[in-house]
Nucleic acid binder design. Structure first.
Length: 153
DNA sequence: GCCAACGTTGGC
DNA sequence: GCCAACGTTGGC
């Protein structure tokens, strides 16, 4: 089963916010990067697992994981002029941006910090730890998933 | 808050 | 199609 990692700013939406949602489920909206969009639209499927990463905050790192419960569909915020994610060039007939729904699964007992991730040889290929990488949705291999789960316990 | 690195835009 | 200018990301 494929694995992924998605970034979120906890000040905007944290893993605790996800755990507190009705049915512990939310739309993952606001992705506005083409490479990340392509993963969401074309690759990410129901039952795939998603590591949740907190960025731009005090405690940076992977905090837990969720599971995809709905395949890609047009991100409604692109059509909403009042949304910060509004995109005037997107149309219902020709949407640019896509979302999936994700459901909370587990919060790690301890955060796996970015500094820790950068220190592990088996994680060097992960875009997250590469200098200058800004990709907000990325694939995670089976072995990377295992390493990260081991670090979380 | 700073700023390096990156992705996108738009003039040519 | 190039590339300068701009806006954004995200660690520190």
């Amino acid at each position: 089963m494929p694995y992924w990692l998605m970034k979120t700013e906890p000040d905007t939406f944290s893993i605790d916010d996800l755990a507190n949602m009705p049915d512990q489920t939310t739309i993952w909206d606001g992705v506005r990067n083409y490479q990340a969009r392509n993963y969401i639209r074309d690759k990410i499927k129901i039952d795939d697992n998603i590591l949740i990463y907190h960025s731009s905050c005090r405690n940076i790192g992977i905090v837990g994981w969720a599971t995809v419960v709905r395949d890609a569909y047009p991100d409604p915020t692109q059509f909403d002029p009042s949304s910060r994610y509004y995109d005037p060039k997107a149309t219902e007939e020709n949407p640019r941006w896509f979302s999936v729904d994700v459901k909370f699964n587990n919060k790690f007992n301890q955060l796996v910090s970015l500094a820790t991730l950068k220190d592990i040889d088996g994680l060097k290929a992960l875009p997250l730890v590469k200098k200058g990488s800004r990709l907000s949705v990325m694939p995670v291999s089976n072995s990377e998933w295992k390493i990260i789960n081991a670090l979380a316990n």
